[in-house]
Design a protein around this nucleic acid. Sequence first.
DNA 1: GCGGTTTTTGGAAAAATCTGCAAAAAAGCG
DNA 2: CGCTTTTTTGCAGATTTTTCCAAAAACCGC
Lengths: 348, 348
Amino acid sequence: MDRKATIYDIAREAGVSTATVTRVVRRDPHVREATRLKVQQVIDAHAYTPSLSAQNLEGGRSRMLAVVLPVISNLYFNRILDAAYWEAERNGCSIRLFQTMENQAISPELVNELIRCRMDGVLFAGSIWSADREDLNSALSRLGKYMPVATICPPDVSLECICIQSDLVNCSRLPVRHLHTLGHRRIAFLGGSMHSKDTSRRGAGFLEQLRLMDLPDDPAYHVDAGYDMESGERAILRMLSGLDASRWPTAIVTFNDLVALGVMKQLKKMGLSLPRDMAIIGCDNQFFCAYTDPSLTSVDLHPEEMAQSAVRELLLARESSARSFAMVREATLVVRESCGAQLGFRKL
Amino acid sequence: MDRKATIYDIAREAGVSTATVTRVVRRDPHVREATRLKVQQVIDAHAYTPSLSAQNLEGGRSRMLAVVLPVISNLYFNRILDAAYWEAERNGCSIRLFQTMENQAISPELVNELIRCRMDGVLFAGSIWSADREDLNSALSRLGKYMPVATICPPDVSLECICIQSDLVNCSRLPVRHLHTLGHRRIAFLGGSMHSKDTSRRGAGFLEQLRLMDLPDDPAYHVDAGYDMESGERAILRMLSGLDASRWPTAIVTFNDLVALGVMKQLKKMGLSLPRDMAIIGCDNQFFCAYTDPSLTSVDLHPEEMAQSAVRELLLARESSARSFAMVREATLVVRESCGAQLGFRKL
DNA sequence: GCGGTTTTTGGAAAAATCTGCAAAAAAGCG
DNA sequence: CGCTTTTTTGCAGATTTTTCCAAAAACCGC
């Protein structure tokens, strides 16, 4: 491995001071054309690039944002990461990724690491909302002393940071309303895990919608089901086999599209025809929704836009004094075939 | 934002030198218990964490690996990134992500950026193999002067770096052999784009297999089709509508699972029943393969293991002098329903 | 308590860059 | 050319940590 040329090497060889080299590199106009040319030549000859570490050390900034999320293999978070990446890129920053897995809280080690790296900002997404509120706010406010903090979080969580809230209200309301319009009365909710605050929140919104529309909120219609396909498969089987067929729901709303995928598989295995025998609505509007059979109606929370806003606000907050506020991106329903709307199906 | 306490602050307050503080932080045993305790107390009181930039500047290392890939939203690359992340994490390193999009070459700006950041190593995956071989090797060898370089690349590309080769031979052979065993004789290949070297390589392997097994390699069975679902949908339509039904292939091998998803959708739209009327095999063994209808037989290239090896070798190469070699992870076929094997289907 | 060991500690340099201020050079003008 | 004004350049210090070497302190046996 070659030793990299330093600004000293360049300065010596070009017969100028390091200050002048810096000026050339940073395109400072206060430098004579002749000098600029001479220095640039040496720079090119050595393919000199200033060291990021030294720049960061001097400037006290790292031009790096942290994105903390449970897993990138989950498509929802994948989209958040992707959007954050490009928005950061557009602003000359890079992203440092942290995966917390199923960790339900912000660990002190993570906080330390973030501070150690002198991140220019940090964006939290997912899962940590189940942490104790006290712990959460103390971790966030500790972090907030060193860098702007943003979160993509449920709407009723008001944290001391930039809160980009996901629209859980519409996330429950839109599917229920849609199904109601199509004549469905027995609607079940499937997914998430009950001990996660995030899910119970979603479940709660769902129940509230049912009540608002005078629909039955049979507890049997609300099942703990995890976040993936296998969970969905098992959960729907459990739900249906525990019920007399006459009491079966006619429509299922799931925590996300993965769960929906599992549900659809299981329903087909049971010989049901979709959407005739059962309507289903997922959440996240993942790429494969248009390619399932039937294609899957789904709620889009617009994670990309939330991530983009979050990064933008983080970068703004870097300059101005710390800010703390909330904003919401409205969720939308993407109607496809899985409820039969396009086929003209109506229950009863 | 608070000003972070520096090692000087701690040293002054604890009444010791900075050297001693460093020793305490790094758990150097050459420090008296009484001193250690006193210093640790001050450290805790200020929640002091050493600055990464300063450490990196001093040490000349960044403890950071670069992963360069076209897009993370593609599941194949997503898995590579995820595996690389965890392997790096296990070794106290972090990952800096670079997305090149459809860029077919390694841009000089990227090379500069990698050097500027003093990466401890860089892993290239995907798409860049279509670059001019000269350009590619010159970029890699320039980089190689500053950091170890690894690539996840097709098998016939022998670059001056650590090459983790994907097993394109079996990637073509396994599906063709499987379909042949099931009695298929007219097999088509669908996907990728002909002007990408990566694809034509895959296409070439496919053709070779057909010839080896004395199967017809009708040019009409080999269609340019991109990498996503829409492309698959369009391509299969184009292929079939250009052929008399008697000459239709009885099985389709696709570039990846996304293309397969599109093909399946289009075939169903045309009223065909799968796998009875048409067998299909994807590639990448994505999570949704088990949940399509019918579930999709697919080739697994094991990107996780390749990424893991790559990172491991990069970290090893950091110590020892630069190494240049190649290794292959054998691809495997994951049989599901889309060829009818499990249902006992056989052609003719 | 003293010489010799071993353990702890501190001083100073090095890592690479940027910036504020002052000095030097160039330019303008009579 | 000399004086003033403007532009260019360099110096020195600041950023934070680590490491080597030497100095200081503690310890041990006699």
